[in-house]
Design a protein around this nucleic acid. Structure first.
Length: 281
DNA sequence: CGGATTTGACCCGG
DNA sequence: CCGGGTCAAATCCG
């Protein structure tokens, strides 16, 4: 397969660090995509043993690319923030109630202007707690409520915004952003936790020997999201579709960290994965 | 019927 | 002006 960028525009290599990093990210994205295509091809191999081995290798490649992407991207977001453990105390000032109007459903039109400024701005401390790459973004024992979703420039999957389910009751400022990184077989998600939970909802099951109390099993079921938004790579064409004759024949991945309970459901003919934090608790 | 999700508008910093 | 983050009415789904 020809792997050319044939982007006939600029021929000179990028110079600044940022340009180079962006270029590297683009290449990694391309590689991720290609790896996925390769995976699909490889899965057509008839002999089970050969196929499985090949699929495993492709999976490794995808993982490596996702990790590299993660590193580069997180470095880009905070180039020089050594520590993220600092819990910046940001007074959640302003919970003003604004007269939102809002309309929906296409029929109605003409939304009244919302009241101006809300969002306070107290500079300094950035309250990012941590970023992790995981396959199971929903399994963290907290009750999250989704409040938004945005397509991110140059990202093929939208970013999902969640806040603590008790943020209203207890003023808990915890939030988290979840973004799928790749459509590799075990899809990887970049989870960014922001602010510490101040609510008393953390039920960590202590590492006692026998697990008597099963962890709260979250339920997932549902799949309805917009298809991945291919917005990036100039050299990439919207090439879609994956085959619909594979997958769902595997289900056991060994991920030790991040308590595991169940994997996000995968839609049969899309690489978009959806998950939902369990209700109640 | 009520809580969670959806989704486009709004806000704001760069 | 653009892009990322948030709001909230409408909708969904138990």
């Amino acid at each position: 397969m020809s792997t050319r960028l044939n982007s006939g525009k600029k021929s000179q290599p990028p110079r600044s660090f940022d340009d180079r990093r962006d270029a590297a990210i683009q290449e990694l994205r391309r590689g991720t995509h290609l790896a996925d295509l390769l995976r699909k091809q490889v899965e057509l191999i008839p002999e089970p043993s050969r196929r499985d081995a090949a699929v495993a290798n492709v999976g490794e490649i995808s993982m490596a690319m996702a990790s590299s992407l993660n590193i580069l991207q997180s470095e880009m977001e905070h180039p020089s923030s050594p520590e993220v453990g600092a819990v910046a105390m940001a007074a959640p000032a302003a919970c003003s109630s604004d007269g939102g109007t809002g309309e929906r459903n296409g029929a109605v039109a003409g939304r009244a202007r919302r009241v101006r400024h809300r969002r306070g701005r107290q500079g300094a401390e950035l309250p990012i707690i941590k970023e992790i790459l995981t396959e199971a973004p929903e399994n963290d024992r907290f009750h999250w409520r989704k409040y938004g979703e945005k397509t991110i420039l140059n990202a093929q999957y939208p970013r999902l915004y969640y806040k603590c389910g008790y943020s209203d009751d207890h003023k808990c400022p915890a939030k988290k952003y979840v973004q799928q990184q790749s459509n590799s077989r075990p899809p990887l998600f970049m989870v960014t936790l922001i602010n510490e939970h101040t609510c008393e909802t953390l039920f960590r099951d202590e590492p006692s020997s026998s697990s008597s109390s099963a962890s709260q099993v979250l339920d997932f079921a549902k799949a309805s999201l917009s298809p991945p938004v291919m917005a990036a790579a100039p050299g990439l064409k919207k090439e879609e579709e994956d085959d619909r004759s594979m997958s769902l024949s595997m289900h056991s991945y060994s991920y030790d960290e991040y308590l595991s309970s169940s994997l996000p459901t995968m839609s049969p003919d899309g690489d978009q994965v959806n998950f939902s934090p369990g209700p109640g608790w």
